[in-house]
Design a binder for these strands. Structure first.
Lengths: 212, 212
DNA sequence: CAGCCTATGTAACAATTGTCACGGAAGCCT
DNA sequence: AGGCTTCCGTGACAATTGTTACATAGGCTG
Protein backbone atom coordinates (compact mmCIF):
# COMPACT_ATOMS: atom_id res chain seq x y z
CA UNK A 1 0.00 0.00 0.00
CA UNK A 2 1.08 3.55 -0.61
CA UNK A 3 1.28 6.01 2.25
CA UNK A 4 -0.81 9.16 1.98
CA UNK A 5 -0.88 12.35 3.96
CA UNK A 6 -4.51 11.76 4.75
CA UNK A 7 -3.81 8.35 6.22
CA UNK A 8 -1.04 9.72 8.39
CA UNK A 9 -3.07 12.68 9.51
CA UNK A 10 -5.80 10.37 10.57
CA UNK A 11 -3.71 7.84 12.39
CA UNK A 12 -1.18 10.20 13.95
CA UNK A 13 -3.50 13.08 14.47
CA UNK A 14 -1.70 16.08 15.79
CA UNK A 15 1.39 14.22 16.84
CA UNK A 16 3.69 15.53 14.14
CA UNK A 17 3.73 18.66 12.06
CA UNK A 18 2.59 18.63 8.45
CA UNK A 19 6.01 18.98 6.91
CA UNK A 20 7.24 15.97 8.81
CA UNK A 21 4.25 13.97 7.65
CA UNK A 22 5.13 14.90 4.09
CA UNK A 23 8.64 13.58 4.52
CA UNK A 24 7.25 10.47 6.15
CA UNK A 25 5.06 9.84 3.13
CA UNK A 26 8.05 10.17 0.86
CA UNK A 27 10.56 7.97 2.63
CA UNK A 28 8.46 5.79 4.91
CA UNK A 29 7.44 2.40 3.67
CA UNK A 30 4.07 1.08 4.72
CA UNK A 31 4.02 -2.58 5.66
CA UNK A 32 1.44 -5.02 6.83
CA UNK A 33 3.01 -7.78 8.89
CA UNK A 34 1.14 -11.04 9.49
CA UNK A 35 0.98 -12.81 12.82
CA UNK A 36 4.14 -14.72 13.57
CA UNK A 37 6.37 -12.85 11.15
CA UNK A 38 9.70 -11.57 12.35
CA UNK A 39 10.45 -7.87 12.22
CA UNK A 40 13.87 -8.23 13.75
CA UNK A 41 16.11 -11.18 14.48
CA UNK A 42 19.07 -11.17 16.80
CA UNK A 43 22.34 -10.60 15.01
CA UNK A 44 20.81 -8.68 12.15
CA UNK A 45 21.77 -5.19 11.20
CA UNK A 46 18.82 -2.86 11.19
CA UNK A 47 18.31 -0.65 8.22
CA UNK A 48 14.94 0.81 9.09
CA UNK A 49 13.11 1.49 12.31
CA UNK A 50 9.60 0.07 12.58
CA UNK A 51 7.06 2.61 13.67
CA UNK A 52 3.95 0.70 14.60
CA UNK A 53 0.63 2.15 13.57
CA UNK A 54 -1.59 -0.60 14.79
CA UNK A 55 -1.25 -4.14 16.08
CA UNK A 56 1.03 -5.77 18.59
CA UNK A 57 4.66 -6.80 18.51
CA UNK A 58 6.45 -8.98 21.00
CA UNK A 59 10.03 -8.17 21.96
CA UNK A 60 12.02 -11.16 23.12
CA UNK A 61 15.48 -11.77 24.47
CA UNK A 62 17.30 -14.93 23.42
CA UNK A 63 20.03 -16.71 25.31
CA UNK A 64 22.74 -19.07 24.13
CA UNK A 65 20.76 -22.23 24.73
CA UNK A 66 17.98 -21.28 22.36
CA UNK A 67 15.61 -20.14 25.05
CA UNK A 68 13.85 -16.86 24.45
CA UNK A 69 12.20 -14.79 27.15
CA UNK A 70 9.57 -12.13 26.70
CA UNK A 71 10.67 -8.59 27.42
CA UNK A 72 7.59 -6.53 26.58
CA UNK A 73 5.05 -5.67 23.94
CA UNK A 74 4.93 -2.81 21.50
CA UNK A 75 1.55 -1.52 20.42
CA UNK A 76 0.05 1.27 18.38
CA UNK A 77 2.19 4.38 17.92
CA UNK A 78 5.14 2.72 19.57
CA UNK A 79 8.57 2.46 18.07
CA UNK A 80 11.33 0.05 18.90
CA UNK A 81 14.01 1.68 20.99
CA UNK A 82 16.37 -1.18 20.39
CA UNK A 83 16.22 -0.45 16.70
CA UNK A 84 16.95 3.17 17.39
CA UNK A 85 20.07 2.45 19.36
CA UNK A 86 21.17 -0.22 16.96
CA UNK A 87 20.77 2.09 14.01
CA UNK A 88 22.46 5.05 15.52
CA UNK A 89 25.34 2.91 16.68
CA UNK A 90 25.17 0.56 13.69
CA UNK A 91 25.24 -2.44 15.97
CA UNK A 92 23.59 -5.80 15.53
CA UNK A 93 20.26 -6.44 17.13
CA UNK A 94 20.26 -8.18 20.48
CA UNK A 95 16.57 -8.93 20.50
CA UNK A 96 13.85 -10.59 18.50
CA UNK A 97 10.69 -8.81 17.40
CA UNK A 98 7.77 -11.04 16.43
CA UNK A 99 4.34 -9.94 15.32
CA UNK A 100 1.82 -10.99 17.92
CA UNK A 101 -1.23 -9.58 16.16
CA UNK A 102 -1.55 -8.40 12.60
CA UNK A 103 0.43 -5.21 12.50
CA UNK A 104 0.57 -2.16 10.29
CA UNK A 105 3.79 -0.26 10.45
CA UNK A 106 5.88 2.32 8.73
CA UNK A 107 9.48 1.45 8.11
CA UNK A 108 11.62 4.54 8.51
CA UNK A 109 15.09 4.56 6.99
CA UNK A 110 17.91 4.91 9.46
CA UNK A 111 19.31 8.14 8.08
CA UNK A 112 16.05 9.95 8.62
CA UNK A 113 15.89 9.17 12.31
CA UNK A 114 18.95 11.26 12.87
CA UNK A 115 18.17 13.79 10.20
CA UNK A 116 14.76 14.68 11.62
CA UNK A 117 15.96 14.80 15.17
CA UNK A 118 17.11 18.37 14.97
CA UNK A 119 14.76 19.54 12.27
CA UNK A 120 11.51 18.57 13.95
CA UNK A 121 11.10 19.08 17.64
CA UNK A 122 8.06 16.79 17.66
CA UNK A 123 10.21 14.04 16.27
CA UNK A 124 12.88 14.61 18.86
CA UNK A 125 10.24 14.46 21.51
CA UNK A 126 8.93 11.25 20.05
CA UNK A 127 12.33 9.63 19.99
CA UNK A 128 13.04 10.46 23.59
CA UNK A 129 9.59 9.45 24.67
CA UNK A 130 10.23 6.14 22.99
CA UNK A 131 13.42 5.67 24.93
CA UNK A 132 11.69 6.46 28.13
CA UNK A 133 8.85 4.04 27.52
CA UNK A 134 11.23 1.25 26.71
CA UNK A 135 13.25 1.89 29.82
CA UNK A 136 10.07 1.72 31.82
CA UNK A 137 9.14 -1.51 30.10
CA UNK A 138 12.50 -3.04 30.87
CA UNK A 139 12.41 -1.92 34.47
CA UNK A 140 8.99 -3.43 34.94
CA UNK A 141 10.18 -6.66 33.43
CA UNK A 142 13.14 -6.68 35.78
CA UNK A 143 10.87 -6.02 38.72
CA UNK A 144 8.76 -8.98 37.79
CA UNK A 145 11.65 -11.33 37.47
CA UNK A 146 13.60 -10.19 40.50
CA UNK A 147 10.89 -9.60 43.03
CA UNK A 148 8.01 -11.86 42.09
CA UNK A 149 7.38 -15.57 42.12
CA UNK A 150 6.34 -17.52 39.11
CA UNK A 151 2.64 -17.66 39.95
CA UNK A 152 2.45 -13.89 40.17
CA UNK A 153 4.51 -13.49 37.04
CA UNK A 154 2.24 -15.88 35.22
CA UNK A 155 -0.85 -13.96 36.22
CA UNK A 156 0.76 -10.67 35.24
CA UNK A 157 1.74 -12.25 31.95
CA UNK A 158 -1.80 -13.32 31.21
CA UNK A 159 -3.17 -9.93 32.12
CA UNK A 160 -0.68 -8.14 29.93
CA UNK A 161 -1.65 -10.45 27.12
CA UNK A 162 -5.31 -9.71 27.62
CA UNK A 163 -4.64 -5.99 27.63
CA UNK A 164 -2.60 -6.26 24.47
CA UNK A 165 -5.16 -8.26 22.48
CA UNK A 166 -8.21 -6.57 23.93
CA UNK A 167 -10.05 -9.78 24.59
CA UNK A 168 -10.29 -12.19 27.49
CA UNK A 169 -9.76 -15.39 25.54
CA UNK A 170 -6.15 -16.23 24.84
CA UNK A 171 -5.24 -18.72 22.17
CA UNK A 172 -1.99 -20.05 23.43
CA UNK A 173 -0.43 -23.29 24.60
CA UNK A 174 1.23 -23.92 27.91
CA UNK A 175 4.44 -24.63 26.09
CA UNK A 176 4.51 -21.16 24.56
CA UNK A 177 3.92 -19.51 27.90
CA UNK A 178 6.68 -21.59 29.42
CA UNK A 179 9.12 -20.37 26.81
CA UNK A 180 8.26 -16.74 27.29
CA UNK A 181 8.67 -17.01 31.03
CA UNK A 182 11.79 -19.12 30.58
CA UNK A 183 10.57 -22.13 32.49
CA UNK A 184 9.14 -25.55 31.65
CA UNK A 185 5.74 -26.59 30.36
CA UNK A 186 4.96 -28.74 33.38
CA UNK A 187 5.49 -25.89 35.78
CA UNK A 188 3.18 -23.66 33.82
CA UNK A 189 0.52 -26.36 33.59
CA UNK A 190 0.71 -26.80 37.33
CA UNK A 191 0.36 -23.11 38.07
CA UNK A 192 -2.41 -22.63 35.53
CA UNK A 193 -4.31 -25.48 37.14
CA UNK A 194 -3.92 -23.66 40.41
CA UNK A 195 -5.33 -20.49 38.92
CA UNK A 196 -8.22 -22.48 37.54
CA UNK A 197 -8.93 -23.93 40.98
CA UNK A 198 -8.98 -20.40 42.35
CA UNK A 199 -11.60 -19.53 39.77
CA UNK A 200 -9.39 -16.97 38.05
CA UNK A 201 -9.20 -18.65 34.66
CA UNK A 202 -10.72 -21.46 32.67
CA UNK A 203 -8.63 -23.92 30.70
CA UNK A 204 -9.37 -25.72 27.47
CA UNK A 205 -7.16 -27.01 24.74
CA UNK A 206 -5.14 -24.19 23.16
CA UNK A 207 -7.19 -21.67 25.02
CA UNK A 208 -7.21 -19.81 28.30
CA UNK A 209 -10.21 -17.77 29.32
CA UNK A 210 -9.68 -15.07 31.90
CA UNK A 211 -12.50 -14.84 34.39
CA UNK A 212 -11.45 -12.27 36.98
CA UNK B 1 36.43 23.00 42.84
CA UNK B 2 36.15 25.14 39.79
CA UNK B 3 36.06 23.53 36.37
CA UNK B 4 38.69 24.57 33.90
CA UNK B 5 39.10 24.01 30.22
CA UNK B 6 42.42 22.37 30.87
CA UNK B 7 40.91 19.87 33.26
CA UNK B 8 38.18 18.94 30.80
CA UNK B 9 40.58 18.68 27.92
CA UNK B 10 42.69 16.33 29.90
CA UNK B 11 39.94 14.10 31.20
CA UNK B 12 37.72 14.07 28.12
CA UNK B 13 40.47 14.25 25.60
CA UNK B 14 39.12 14.58 22.12
CA UNK B 15 35.62 13.51 22.99
CA UNK B 16 33.96 16.92 22.63
CA UNK B 17 34.79 20.02 20.63
CA UNK B 18 36.35 23.02 22.29
CA UNK B 19 33.25 25.22 22.18
CA UNK B 20 31.25 22.57 23.99
CA UNK B 21 33.94 22.28 26.61
CA UNK B 22 33.72 26.01 27.13
CA UNK B 23 30.00 25.79 27.74
CA UNK B 24 30.56 22.87 30.05
CA UNK B 25 32.96 24.94 32.10
CA UNK B 26 30.39 27.69 32.38
CA UNK B 27 27.30 25.72 33.33
CA UNK B 28 28.63 22.43 34.63
CA UNK B 29 29.19 22.03 38.32
CA UNK B 30 32.06 19.93 39.49
CA UNK B 31 31.31 17.70 42.42
CA UNK B 32 33.19 15.19 44.46
CA UNK B 33 30.88 12.58 45.92
CA UNK B 34 32.01 10.43 48.85
CA UNK B 35 31.41 6.70 49.11
CA UNK B 36 27.87 5.92 50.14
CA UNK B 37 26.37 9.25 49.16
CA UNK B 38 23.19 9.29 47.11
CA UNK B 39 23.21 10.98 43.73
CA UNK B 40 19.61 10.10 42.99
CA UNK B 41 16.78 8.74 45.08
CA UNK B 42 13.60 7.22 43.75
CA UNK B 43 10.75 9.68 43.57
CA UNK B 44 12.95 12.71 43.19
CA UNK B 45 12.82 15.08 40.30
CA UNK B 46 16.12 15.42 38.59
CA UNK B 47 17.45 18.85 37.90
CA UNK B 48 20.86 17.96 36.62
CA UNK B 49 22.37 14.98 34.92
CA UNK B 50 25.48 13.52 36.51
CA UNK B 51 28.30 13.01 34.08
CA UNK B 52 30.85 10.85 35.81
CA UNK B 53 34.49 11.68 35.34
CA UNK B 54 35.98 9.09 37.62
CA UNK B 55 34.80 6.65 40.23
CA UNK B 56 31.96 4.19 40.38
CA UNK B 57 28.24 4.57 40.90
CA UNK B 58 25.75 1.83 41.65
CA UNK B 59 22.32 1.97 40.06
CA UNK B 60 19.66 0.15 42.04
CA UNK B 61 15.99 -0.62 41.60
CA UNK B 62 13.74 -0.51 44.67
CA UNK B 63 10.49 -2.37 45.14
CA UNK B 64 7.56 -1.65 47.42
CA UNK B 65 8.80 -3.78 50.29
CA UNK B 66 11.99 -1.84 50.72
CA UNK B 67 14.16 -4.31 48.90
CA UNK B 68 16.61 -2.87 46.42
CA UNK B 69 18.26 -4.82 43.66
CA UNK B 70 21.40 -3.92 41.75
CA UNK B 71 20.90 -3.02 38.12
CA UNK B 72 24.40 -2.06 37.00
CA UNK B 73 27.37 0.17 37.62
CA UNK B 74 28.35 3.45 36.05
CA UNK B 75 32.00 4.28 35.73
CA UNK B 76 34.26 6.91 34.24
CA UNK B 77 32.85 8.90 31.33
CA UNK B 78 29.43 7.35 31.80
CA UNK B 79 26.25 9.28 32.23
CA UNK B 80 23.01 8.13 33.73
CA UNK B 81 20.44 7.39 31.06
CA UNK B 82 17.67 7.27 33.59
CA UNK B 83 18.41 10.86 34.46
CA UNK B 84 18.32 11.78 30.83
CA UNK B 85 14.87 10.33 30.27
CA UNK B 86 13.60 11.68 33.53
CA UNK B 87 14.81 15.15 32.72
CA UNK B 88 13.54 15.25 29.23
CA UNK B 89 10.17 13.93 30.33
CA UNK B 90 10.25 15.71 33.70
CA UNK B 91 9.32 12.50 35.46
CA UNK B 92 10.37 11.29 38.87
CA UNK B 93 13.30 8.96 39.22
CA UNK B 94 12.54 5.27 39.42
CA UNK B 95 15.98 4.26 40.52
CA UNK B 96 18.58 4.90 43.17
CA UNK B 97 22.13 5.96 42.42
CA UNK B 98 24.67 5.43 45.19
CA UNK B 99 28.35 6.18 45.07
CA UNK B 100 30.29 2.95 45.27
CA UNK B 101 33.72 4.49 45.09
CA UNK B 102 34.74 8.09 45.53
CA UNK B 103 33.43 9.80 42.44
CA UNK B 104 34.14 12.98 40.58
CA UNK B 105 31.35 14.20 38.39
CA UNK B 106 30.03 17.15 36.49
CA UNK B 107 26.42 18.06 37.09
CA UNK B 108 24.88 19.31 33.90
CA UNK B 109 21.69 21.37 34.08
CA UNK B 110 18.69 19.79 32.41
CA UNK B 111 18.11 22.54 29.86
CA UNK B 112 21.57 22.11 28.44
CA UNK B 113 21.11 18.45 27.63
CA UNK B 114 18.45 19.34 25.13
CA UNK B 115 20.04 22.57 24.03
CA UNK B 116 23.33 20.99 23.08
CA UNK B 117 21.74 18.05 21.36
CA UNK B 118 21.34 19.84 18.07
CA UNK B 119 24.20 22.25 18.42
CA UNK B 120 26.95 19.74 19.02
CA UNK B 121 26.97 16.51 17.10
CA UNK B 122 29.50 15.04 19.51
CA UNK B 123 27.05 15.65 22.30
CA UNK B 124 24.24 14.03 20.39
CA UNK B 125 26.45 11.07 19.77
CA UNK B 126 27.32 10.92 23.43
CA UNK B 127 23.69 11.00 24.49
CA UNK B 128 22.70 8.19 22.18
CA UNK B 129 25.73 6.19 23.09
CA UNK B 130 24.70 6.55 26.69
CA UNK B 131 21.25 5.22 25.93
CA UNK B 132 22.69 2.30 24.12
CA UNK B 133 25.08 1.39 26.90
CA UNK B 134 22.32 1.51 29.45
CA UNK B 135 20.10 -0.68 27.34
CA UNK B 136 22.90 -3.15 27.08
CA UNK B 137 23.42 -3.03 30.83
CA UNK B 138 19.75 -3.66 31.48
CA UNK B 139 19.63 -6.50 29.01
CA UNK B 140 22.59 -8.17 30.61
CA UNK B 141 21.00 -7.80 34.00
CA UNK B 142 17.82 -9.37 32.68
CA UNK B 143 19.80 -12.21 31.17
CA UNK B 144 21.39 -12.90 34.50
CA UNK B 145 18.15 -12.94 36.40
CA UNK B 146 16.10 -14.86 33.87
CA UNK B 147 18.53 -17.44 32.65
CA UNK B 148 20.97 -18.02 35.45
CA UNK B 149 20.85 -19.56 38.88
CA UNK B 150 21.90 -17.80 42.01
CA UNK B 151 25.34 -19.34 42.26
CA UNK B 152 26.23 -18.17 38.78
CA UNK B 153 24.72 -14.77 39.44
CA UNK B 154 26.70 -14.47 42.63
CA UNK B 155 29.94 -15.27 40.87
CA UNK B 156 29.14 -12.81 38.10
CA UNK B 157 28.31 -10.24 40.74
CA UNK B 158 31.63 -10.68 42.45
CA UNK B 159 33.50 -10.50 39.19
CA UNK B 160 31.72 -7.32 38.15
CA UNK B 161 32.57 -5.85 41.50
CA UNK B 162 36.21 -6.74 41.09
CA UNK B 163 36.27 -5.21 37.64
CA UNK B 164 34.65 -2.04 38.91
CA UNK B 165 37.00 -1.50 41.84
CA UNK B 166 40.12 -2.81 40.12
CA UNK B 167 41.19 -4.94 42.99
CA UNK B 168 40.61 -8.54 44.03
CA UNK B 169 39.72 -7.89 47.64
CA UNK B 170 36.14 -6.86 48.22
CA UNK B 171 35.12 -5.18 51.45
CA UNK B 172 31.54 -6.20 51.73
CA UNK B 173 29.24 -8.18 53.97
CA UNK B 174 27.08 -11.12 52.99
CA UNK B 175 24.04 -9.10 53.97
CA UNK B 176 24.84 -6.38 51.44
CA UNK B 177 25.32 -8.88 48.67
CA UNK B 178 22.04 -10.52 49.58
CA UNK B 179 20.23 -7.21 49.23
CA UNK B 180 21.70 -6.46 45.86
CA UNK B 181 20.78 -9.87 44.54
CA UNK B 182 17.38 -9.64 46.23
CA UNK B 183 17.75 -12.76 48.33
CA UNK B 184 18.59 -13.57 51.94
CA UNK B 185 21.85 -13.44 53.81
CA UNK B 186 21.82 -17.15 54.67
CA UNK B 187 21.55 -18.12 51.04
CA UNK B 188 24.49 -15.96 50.11
CA UNK B 189 26.57 -17.30 52.99
CA UNK B 190 25.80 -20.81 51.84
CA UNK B 191 26.76 -20.14 48.24
CA UNK B 192 29.88 -18.22 49.22
CA UNK B 193 30.97 -21.13 51.35
CA UNK B 194 30.51 -23.33 48.33
CA UNK B 195 32.71 -21.03 46.26
CA UNK B 196 35.32 -21.11 48.99
CA UNK B 197 35.27 -24.90 49.00
CA UNK B 198 35.83 -24.81 45.26
CA UNK B 199 38.87 -22.66 45.86
CA UNK B 200 37.45 -19.72 43.94
CA UNK B 201 37.38 -17.26 46.82
CA UNK B 202 38.56 -16.80 50.36
CA UNK B 203 36.31 -15.56 53.14
CA UNK B 204 37.09 -13.46 56.17
CA UNK B 205 35.04 -11.02 58.16
CA UNK B 206 33.84 -8.12 55.98
CA UNK B 207 36.08 -9.28 53.21
CA UNK B 208 36.04 -11.54 50.21
CA UNK B 209 39.21 -12.29 48.32
CA UNK B 210 38.90 -13.50 44.77
CA UNK B 211 41.37 -16.21 43.91
CA UNK B 212 40.53 -17.34 40.40
C1' DC C 1 39.05 -8.16 80.44
C1' DA C 2 33.87 -8.05 80.26
C1' DG C 3 30.17 -6.66 77.61
C1' DC C 4 28.14 -5.71 73.40
C1' DC C 5 27.19 -5.48 68.63
C1' DT C 6 27.70 -7.18 64.14
C1' DA C 7 28.95 -10.69 60.92
C1' DT C 8 29.21 -15.37 59.80
C1' DG C 9 28.31 -20.65 59.97
C1' DT C 10 25.13 -24.05 59.84
C1' DA C 11 21.41 -27.44 60.61
C1' DA C 12 16.84 -28.39 59.73
C1' DC C 13 12.93 -27.71 57.48
C1' DA C 14 9.52 -25.37 54.08
C1' DA C 15 8.39 -23.66 49.70
C1' DT C 16 9.24 -23.13 45.06
C1' DT C 17 10.81 -24.58 40.79
C1' DG C 18 12.79 -28.11 37.61
C1' DT C 19 12.79 -32.81 35.61
C1' DC C 20 11.22 -37.34 34.30
C1' DA C 21 7.84 -40.49 33.12
C1' DC C 22 3.72 -41.72 31.50
C1' DG C 23 -1.29 -41.62 30.45
C1' DG C 24 -5.15 -39.57 28.63
C1' DA C 25 -7.60 -36.22 25.71
C1' DA C 26 -8.56 -33.37 21.67
C1' DG C 27 -8.29 -32.65 17.12
C1' DC C 28 -6.95 -33.94 12.42
C1' DC C 29 -6.43 -37.08 8.50
C1' DT C 30 -7.54 -41.02 5.89
C1' DA D 1 -13.54 -45.87 13.09
C1' DG D 2 -8.52 -46.13 13.47
C1' DG D 3 -4.20 -43.94 13.59
C1' DC D 4 -1.40 -39.96 14.39
C1' DT D 5 0.18 -35.75 16.45
C1' DT D 6 0.01 -32.29 19.70
C1' DC D 7 -1.44 -30.70 24.03
C1' DC D 8 -2.46 -31.26 28.72
C1' DG D 9 -2.62 -33.50 33.58
C1' DT D 10 -0.22 -35.37 37.10
C1' DG D 11 2.57 -38.06 40.33
C1' DA D 12 7.08 -38.63 42.02
C1' DC D 13 11.25 -37.01 42.95
C1' DA D 14 15.42 -33.72 42.57
C1' DA D 15 17.41 -29.29 42.98
C1' DT D 16 17.25 -24.73 44.29
C1' DT D 17 15.97 -21.13 47.14
C1' DG D 18 13.74 -19.26 51.38
C1' DT D 19 13.08 -19.35 56.47
C1' DT D 20 13.86 -20.19 61.27
C1' DA D 21 16.69 -20.79 64.90
C1' DC D 22 20.66 -20.75 67.21
C1' DA D 23 25.80 -21.03 67.85
C1' DT D 24 30.13 -18.95 67.25
C1' DA D 25 33.50 -15.57 66.12
C1' DG D 26 35.61 -10.92 65.50
C1' DG D 27 36.18 -6.60 66.88
C1' DC D 28 35.07 -2.46 69.40
C1' DT D 29 34.27 0.11 73.80
C1' DG D 30 34.33 1.10 78.42
Amino acid sequence: MKLTIEYLQETLKGRFELSLLQELVEVGQFKRAPVGSYLIRPGEYIRSVPFIIRGSVKIMRPDQEGREALLYYLGGLDACAMSLTCCLGSKRSEITAVVEEETELIAIPVEKIDDWLCRYSTWKQFVFQTYQKRFDNLLMTIDEVIFHKLDERLLAYLQKKVASCQCTVLNITHEEIAQELATSREVISRLLKQLEKNGQIQLTRNKITMLA
